[in-house]
Design a protein around this nucleic acid. Structure first.
Lengths: 191, 191
DNA sequence: CATAAAGTAGACCACTCTGTCTACTTGCAG
DNA sequence: CTGCAAGTAGACAGAGTGGTCTACTTTATG
């Protein structure tokens, strides 16, 4: 049995979807680039939509573990610094497991599939929630009352989302530094 | 001469593109819904891409003037309040000239057309810049030193972008209130 | 050794896509 | 009245779409 044809399909699909958008990429293009037969694809996935869902899952794993690592490095340093420095590296394409930066894959997919009860949208929301929880655990070091921490967390998430989207639109990686500066101000207000 | 077939094309195209995404909507669908002949479309626009650019321009005008009005109302009140209350109304679909909320049209288009030198991306960046400048003029009332105001403006833009995207992903209009709260904290830190 | 699962290539289906083109109609301006 | 610009309907082209299917090969395992 060929090794993980399935995984390779998801891999190429993710790369192409992320770079060009989902509707802009055809099944045949994915098949060509992964050197996989059409029948094999439809053996593993019932439709293009399901393949899309698989790419979202893969991207979530990648992103989550990457961020986890970034936040776990340098025990001592401020988690806020680590968060926005990580984002900065991502914007510059220096976050290896994430590849070149084309905005948030989940936001991009949500832009194409924002129907009323879209499975895509649900997965995207789930991803954002899990990332939020991950960041939250790293804020414990601040030793703030729960309510304050929750307020801080909300602010960080807003700044993070804002930064990602501004980085894409203006192709400007320095917004991560600006966002960090804003986060510092927020910390100051909450101290 | 039929009245503004051209404008009607842009109108329907904007509605459909915004709701379903650009690649997901075909020329024929636009033609049907606007009751316009194909030849007429290609008389006014050389391609679907140019039609897309026209929709971006139209949306920019609409959005800019809507925000301008929102910020000019109630002379006395805090511009920050006005900004995020306006966003909240938009998220709830209560901003009439903008129609139902499906995220930021420019972000959505950027998600589909983020190629290296995309005209779409350029227009989107321009739009965001003009909106930023508009907000900036309304911050004069705070009477802060220039540098402080610039910092405040950056923060507001990040919060705004973040709020828009979170509102789409979580279909939750209350994020506007959360963003407003964060903006208040920012103001506090800068006072 | 046989069976079943997973793979191959690629023809094929019914559609849709953007864009072109012919042939004809309408309304205004010189 | 004429001529032109803008409009109509819709056939057509050529490529591409997602998805199904037949017929064959490989590979691991009971």
């Amino acid at each position: 049995m060929e090794p993980d044809k399935k995984q390779q399909l998801v891999e190429t699909a993710l790369t192409l979807f992320y770079r060009y958008g989902v509707h802009a990429v055809g099944i045949n293009q994915i098949l060509e680039q992964s050197a996989v037969a059409k029948k094999t694809l439809y053996h593993h996935f019932v439709s293009k939509d399901e393949l899309l869902l698989a790419t979202l899952e893969l991207r979530h794993q990648r992103f989550y573990h990457w961020l986890q690592q970034e936040l776990n490095r340098n025990e001592g340093t401020d988690p806020v610094d680590k968060l926005f420095d990580a984002l900065g590296a991502w914007f510059e394409g220096k976050a290896e497991p994430l590849g070149p930066f084309f905005g948030c894959y989940f936001q991009n997919c949500a832009a194409e599939y924002h129907g009323p009860d879209s499975a895509v949208l649900r997965l995207c929301a789930q991803h954002k929630l899990k990332v939020k929880q991950l960041v939250n655990t790293h804020l414990q070091s601040y030793q703030r009352p729960e309510q304050t921490q929750s307020l801080l967390l909300d602010g960080l998430m807003l700044l993070k989302e804002g930064a990602i989207n501004m980085a894409l639109l203006h192709t400007d990686a320095t917004v991560a530094q600006h966002a960090k500066q804003q986060a510092r101000l927020l910390l100051q207000a909450l101290s």
